[in-house]
Amino acid sequence: MSLTAQGVSWSIDGHRVVDGVGLEVAPGTTMGLLGPNGSGKSSLLRLLAGLRAPAEGSIRLGGDDLADLPRRDIARRLALVEQDVNTDQDPLVREVIDLGRIPHRRRWSGESRSDRAAVLRAAQVTGVTEHLERRYSTLSGGERQRTQIARALAQEPTVLLLDEPTNHLDIRHQLSLLGMVRRAPATVVMALHDLNLALEFCDVVVVLESGRVAAAGPPAEVVDPALIEEVYGVPARVVQDEDGLHVRFLAAGEQSPSPAG
């Protein structure tokens, strides 16, 4: 299912966090949202998920305007994995994943056989099957992240939004998680910090700067030294080898020092 944003703006306390963003995610593709801290990636994801209403512009999911869809219908088509979610309750991993089934069942009915099957499938894909009977609070950061993604997959969404899914993960888990996300049968939009991971795992990237789209397109075309210097304020080199493109950041000593920030 496609996801489109047109001239979307959103402010908080008079500060324009998302400023006239337009983007179009083709069905089945993986889009990376890049940009420094505070560039509006998380806010844009919340707008795309329908959790906040844009002050201007519109967002369309498939053929429908997000603003016209009931929450439940959105939740059946679109799942969101936020950063650093927590709970003061102490559910089992199985119960967390099963939350993803809520939009699919009547509010008073218990879990059906197909719910259980969906939970098991999602656990298998994310590799948390062995943890199903553990408490969420006893999991490591990486296991929690995978559990949250399993919950989102149990929602059986056609669009999957992820806010920095590789945060707190070691490199092995980053790679396996992004591979898993890429294989998911859904249109994916994810905020990423790591430019090299974006080069490797995204079909398209959108670079945000102060809430605006600074660049968009295939990562190999978008990610270049001039853009990195402009958006992140860090000198960098993009090198090509037999495995593809890589970004190398230059330490301050290798070039003239750049302004902090």
């Binding site: 329908g50 439940r72 936020e82 709970t87 119960e95 967390v96 939350l99 509010r107």
Partner: peptide, 18 residues
């Protein structure tokens, strides 16, 4: 009951669960 379950990870999580 399932609405209350959906609040496990907060109100944004509940909203994104429909």
């Amino acid at each position: 009951a399932s609405v209350l379950d959906a609040f496990t990870f907060g109100q944004d999580a509940a909203a994104s669960l429909g």
